[in-house]
Amino acid sequence: MKRYFLAFFAFLLLTFSCTGNRANQTDEVPADSVADSTDTTDIDTLEMLITETPMPRAADAMFDDFLFNFLANKKLQKERVVFPLRVTENGTTTKIEANDWKMEHLFMRQGYYTLLFNSDKQMQLMKDTAVNEATVEKILLAKNQVKNYCFQRIKGAWLLREIKVTPLQTDANASFLSFYKRFVTDTVFQIKSISETVDFVGPDPDDDFNMMEGVITPDTWEAFAPTLPHKTLYNIIYGKPQEEGKEKIYLLRGVANGLEMELRFKKEGGKWMLKKLMT
Rank of each mutant, 00 (worst) to 15 (best):
L116A: 04
S119T: 15
D120S: 06
D120T: 04
D120H: 09
Q122P: 00
M123E: 02
L125G: 03
L125N: 07
M126V: 00
K127M: 03
D128H: 04
D128Y: 05
A130M: 12
V131E: 15
A134N: 01
T135W: 09
I139F: 05
L140M: 10
A142L: 10
Q145Y: 08
K147M: 10
K147L: 03
Y149D: 01
Y149I: 06
C150E: 04
C150G: 00
F151L: 02
Q152C: 09
Q152K: 14
R153Y: 00
R153W: 01
I154L: 00
G156N: 09
W158D: 00
E162V: 11
I163E: 03
I163W: 00
V165L: 09
T166R: 09
T166V: 15
L168C: 05
Q169C: 09
D171L: 13
F176V: 12
F176M: 11
R182V: 10
R182M: 09
V184Y: 13
V184P: 07
T185R: 09
T187I: 05
T187R: 02
F189G: 13
I191W: 02
I191M: 09
I194H: 12
S195Y: 06
S195M: 11
E196D: 09
E196C: 02
T197F: 13
G202T: 10
G202P: 11
P205N: 15
D208T: 04
G214P: 12
G214S: 04
G214T: 02
I216R: 05
T220I: 14
W221D: 12
W221K: 14
E222G: 02
A225G: 07
A225W: 04
P226V: 14
P226E: 15
T227G: 11
L228E: 12
P229S: 12
T232K: 15
L233Q: 11
Y234K: 04
N235C: 10
I237E: 01
I237S: 02
G239Y: 07
E243T: 14
E243W: 05
K246M: 04
K246W: 01
K248F: 08
K248R: 07
L252R: 13
R253M: 14
G254R: 08
G254I: 11
V255E: 07
G258Q: 08
L259E: 06
M261T: 13
M261W: 14
